[in-house]
Computed example of a mutant assay.
Amino acid sequence: MSNALAKIEFSQEELVVIKKQFFPAGGSPAEQQYCFAVAKELGLNPITREIYFVPRRQKINNQWVEKIEPMVGRDGFLSIAHRSSQLAGMETTANIQEVPQLVNGRWEYRKDLLAECRVWRKDSDKPFAVQVSYSEYVQKNNDGQPTRFWSEKPETMLKKVAESQALRKAFNIHGVYSPEEMGAGFETAGGDLVVSPSIEAEFSTVPDRGKEPGPEPAPNEADDGWPPIGPTPKQGDQPKGEYTLADIANMLAAKSIKYELDEDCGYIAAKSFTHKDFLKSIGFRWEPEIKSWVWTGMKEAA
């Protein structure tokens, strides 16, 4: 059974783009070298959102240690599988079953949502199977409730975990994990990574500038780590609620506001604390669950 992965080489121009736009600010040369080496070894391109470089804050012996780790979305693992020419099929199901859970120090059978993924290879007569449970992987807010997307799309999120694990198992991929598995957030249909607020103390998309993690400030009490852009450009007489996704994306780009676009779901999530009034004026609303301003084409309530 062949497990060889096609490596990738980045040109100097690509490396410049990756370092500037896809590598977190503040990363050391050693971290860059490590992350790029993983990407090359797996044959995954960060420019096409096949692999992400995620800043992680981890508390060790009461000290916060910062590091940047590569993470691969389910589609990145699927890309490796397709390039191997050995993928013969994949089937993922989800249903409710009774599973053993440890409750107050005792094992009990309780109902849980389970996702199972089976991956077939052309050079193997048996599938590689993985089962994962909702209670083990659900991402939660600080109040202990499931985050918005784990609440609204639990089956979709859990299937991504099962598929990532089954593809790694079938194609002998080691050392990298998906954001859904690690509680780091989730990958949108457009290939962007939305960081989970429940682990914001450990993961961040914003340069830390040496501060200890603390409570999330109100939207108008902190900045997003990027320099101020200047006055809001005139948007014409078009009323909010009548913009298209393209209109909103263009306006955000004009102010250099970082955003994540999901055309399938029809929304844009923007990460900025210094442009509150501007974002509200074009129809964004603050979503505390994902610590982002979100636009869905609907007018903001007065």
Rank of each mutant, 00 (worst) to 15 (best):
E287A: 13
A246H: 14
P127I: 07
Q145A: 11
N250A: 12
V138K: 10
K153I: 02
F186W: 10
P197C: 14
V72C: 02
S281V: 00
E66R: 15
T205M: 08
D264Y: 13
I51N: 00
E13S: 10
M251W: 10
E163W: 08
T92Q: 10
F278M: 08
Q12F: 07
L158Y: 05
D75S: 12
L114M: 15
D223L: 07
E260M: 12
D143K: 11
G185R: 02
K153D: 03
S2Q: 10
K234A: 09
A39P: 07
M182V: 10
W64Q: 14
P228S: 14
T188E: 00
K122H: 11
F203T: 08
P219Y: 07
K299Q: 14
G230K: 05
W293C: 05
E41P: 02
A39M: 05
W293G: 06
K67C: 09
G210T: 04
R106W: 09
G283I: 02
A37T: 08
I60R: 13
Q101G: 10
T147M: 15
V130I: 15
E242Q: 15
P46W: 00
E66H: 14
E212V: 09
S135D: 10
A129H: 03
G26S: 03
K122C: 07
K20A: 13
P179Y: 01
R168Q: 08
I47L: 11
P233N: 09
R74N: 06
K67R: 15
P146L: 12
F149W: 08
S124C: 10
F171D: 01
R121S: 03
A254W: 00
G43W: 07
I18K: 06
I96R: 15
D262Y: 04
R83I: 00
W120L: 14
G43Q: 11
S164N: 03
F278V: 00
M182Y: 08
T147D: 14
R168K: 15
P24S: 06
K59C: 12
Q238K: 15
W226I: 01
P55I: 08
K258T: 04
K234T: 00
E180A: 04
E136P: 00
E136Y: 03
A170P: 02
L279D: 02
L15D: 03
D208H: 14
Y243C: 02
L15Y: 06
W293N: 06
L42Q: 08
A37W: 08
P219L: 09
G214L: 00
Y134A: 00
E13M: 01
E13N: 07
A25G: 12
E116V: 15
P288K: 10
L113E: 08
A129C: 09
I80P: 01
W226C: 04
K234P: 01
S85H: 14
E9T: 15
D123Y: 06
P228D: 14
K258M: 03
E163Y: 07
P219C: 04
K40P: 05
W150L: 02
V206R: 14
E152R: 13
F128M: 12
E200D: 12
E41S: 15
K153F: 09
F128S: 14
E155H: 10
L158H: 09
G241A: 03
R110T: 00
K276D: 09
P228G: 13
E263K: 14
W293E: 05
N3L: 11
K276A: 11
Q12K: 15
N104P: 06
V194C: 09
F284H: 03
K255Y: 00
K169R: 14
E50A: 09
Y137A: 02
A249E: 15
A162D: 10
R168M: 10
Y109G: 07
